[in-house]
Amino acid sequence: YHADPSLVSFLTGLGCPNCIEYFTSQGLQSIYHLQNLTIEDLGALKIPEQYRMTIWRGLQDLK
């Protein structure tokens, strides 16, 4: 799967570019796929713990 530029820029902007593959490997290719994820969902996606809160907060800021 290839990540949408919106996803790449979002995660890169948060300092988490190495997390892109965790999302794309589950078929979550764009920022729209991420918008309703919970902190528990990020854990289920195996996002490293040190990035989960950062990503979750970033998603809240998009709403």
Score class of each variant (00 low, 15 high):
residue 42 L to R: 01
residue 33 H to P: 06
residue 19 C to S: 07
residue 48 P to F: 00
residue 52 R to T: 11
residue 11 L to N: 00
residue 25 S to R: 10
residue 41 D to S: 11
residue 44 A to K: 13
residue 47 I to E: 00
residue 17 P to V: 11
residue 14 L to F: 02
residue 18 N to C: 06
residue 20 I to H: 08
residue 7 L to V: 08
residue 20 I to T: 10
residue 63 K to Y: 15
residue 7 L to M: 10
residue 1 Y to E: 11
residue 31 I to Y: 05
residue 34 L to D: 01
residue 53 M to A: 09
residue 50 Q to Y: 03
residue 32 Y to R: 13
residue 21 E to N: 09
residue 37 L to K: 11
residue 5 P to G: 15
residue 39 I to M: 05
residue 15 G to D: 07
residue 26 Q to V: 09
residue 1 Y to N: 13
residue 28 L to V: 10
residue 54 T to D: 10
residue 44 A to V: 13
residue 12 T to Q: 12
residue 28 L to F: 15
residue 53 M to V: 08
residue 45 L to C: 10
residue 58 G to M: 00
residue 22 Y to S: 06
residue 8 V to P: 11
residue 4 D to N: 05
residue 5 P to S: 14
residue 6 S to N: 07
residue 30 S to F: 02
residue 53 M to K: 09
residue 45 L to M: 12
residue 39 I to T: 05
residue 25 S to A: 12
residue 9 S to D: 06
residue 31 I to E: 06
residue 27 G to S: 07
residue 42 L to S: 01
residue 53 M to D: 12
residue 49 E to N: 14
residue 15 G to Y: 02
residue 19 C to R: 00
residue 48 P to D: 08
residue 32 Y to T: 11
residue 57 R to T: 12
residue 54 T to L: 10
residue 21 E to F: 12
residue 37 L to P: 01
residue 14 L to Q: 03
residue 14 L to H: 04
residue 51 Y to G: 03
residue 59 L to S: 03
residue 3 A to D: 14
residue 18 N to L: 05
residue 52 R to G: 06
residue 56 W to P: 00
residue 14 L to W: 02
residue 8 V to Q: 12
residue 18 N to V: 08
residue 16 C to Q: 02
residue 46 K to C: 07
residue 35 Q to F: 05
residue 63 K to P: 02
residue 23 F to Y: 01
residue 32 Y to Q: 13
residue 15 G to Q: 06
residue 13 G to C: 05
residue 2 H to D: 07
residue 13 G to H: 14
residue 23 F to L: 04
residue 3 A to V: 15
residue 12 T to D: 15
residue 12 T to M: 12
residue 9 S to Q: 14
residue 29 Q to E: 13
residue 47 I to D: 02
residue 33 H to E: 11
residue 15 G to I: 00
residue 36 N to E: 14
residue 22 Y to P: 07
residue 51 Y to E: 07
residue 59 L to Y: 06
residue 30 S to K: 09
residue 49 E to Y: 04
residue 47 I to V: 13
residue 49 E to V: 11
residue 49 E to K: 10
residue 5 P to I: 15
residue 53 M to Y: 03
residue 5 P to M: 15
residue 34 L to M: 12
residue 36 N to H: 12
residue 29 Q to R: 08
residue 11 L to E: 01
residue 30 S to V: 02
residue 14 L to Y: 03
residue 55 I to M: 04
residue 52 R to C: 06
residue 52 R to P: 01
residue 49 E to D: 14
residue 30 S to H: 09
residue 3 A to Y: 15
residue 29 Q to P: 11
residue 18 N to Y: 05
residue 59 L to W: 04
residue 18 N to T: 07
residue 6 S to M: 09
residue 19 C to V: 13
residue 59 L to H: 01
residue 22 Y to G: 05
residue 62 L to H: 11
residue 1 Y to R: 05
residue 40 E to Q: 06
residue 16 C to E: 01
residue 9 S to F: 04
residue 27 G to Q: 08
residue 56 W to D: 04
residue 57 R to W: 06
residue 30 S to P: 01
residue 15 G to N: 11
residue 46 K to V: 07
residue 55 I to A: 00
residue 8 V to T: 14
residue 9 S to N: 14
residue 28 L to R: 08
residue 60 Q to N: 14
residue 19 C to Q: 12
residue 15 G to S: 05
residue 42 L to C: 02
residue 58 G to T: 03
residue 51 Y to V: 08
residue 61 D to R: 08
residue 55 I to W: 00
residue 20 I to W: 03
residue 51 Y to P: 08
residue 33 H to R: 08
residue 13 G to T: 10
residue 15 G to E: 06
residue 38 T to I: 03
residue 38 T to E: 06
residue 41 D to A: 07
residue 60 Q to V: 09
residue 8 V to A: 14
residue 31 I to T: 10
residue 50 Q to S: 13
residue 3 A to M: 15
residue 34 L to A: 13
residue 29 Q to T: 13
residue 27 G to Y: 01
residue 18 N to M: 05
residue 43 G to E: 13
residue 62 L to M: 12
residue 57 R to H: 11
residue 7 L to S: 01
residue 61 D to P: 07
residue 33 H to A: 10
residue 24 T to V: 07
residue 27 G to K: 07
residue 29 Q to C: 13
residue 27 G to E: 10
residue 45 L to K: 04
residue 61 D to N: 09
residue 6 S to L: 05
residue 19 C to M: 13
residue 63 K to E: 14
residue 25 S to G: 12
residue 11 L to C: 06
residue 30 S to M: 07
residue 8 V to M: 15
residue 30 S to Y: 10
residue 58 G to K: 11
residue 21 E to H: 07
residue 17 P to L: 12
residue 60 Q to L: 10
residue 14 L to K: 05
residue 52 R to W: 07
residue 21 E to P: 08
residue 37 L to M: 12
residue 57 R to L: 08
residue 63 K to T: 15
residue 43 G to W: 05
residue 23 F to W: 00
residue 58 G to Y: 01
residue 58 G to V: 01
residue 60 Q to E: 14
residue 1 Y to L: 14
residue 14 L to E: 02
residue 10 F to K: 00
residue 46 K to A: 07
residue 46 K to S: 09
residue 17 P to W: 05
residue 44 A to C: 12
residue 15 G to W: 01
residue 57 R to P: 01
residue 34 L to N: 02
residue 23 F to K: 00
residue 33 H to W: 02
residue 5 P to V: 15
residue 18 N to R: 06
residue 45 L to V: 10
residue 47 I to Q: 00
residue 3 A to W: 15
residue 8 V to C: 11
residue 30 S to C: 08
residue 1 Y to S: 14
residue 60 Q to F: 06
residue 2 H to P: 11
residue 37 L to S: 05
residue 25 S to F: 04
residue 56 W to G: 06
residue 42 L to W: 14
residue 16 C to S: 02
residue 26 Q to M: 04
residue 49 E to W: 08
residue 28 L to E: 04
residue 21 E to D: 11
residue 53 M to W: 09
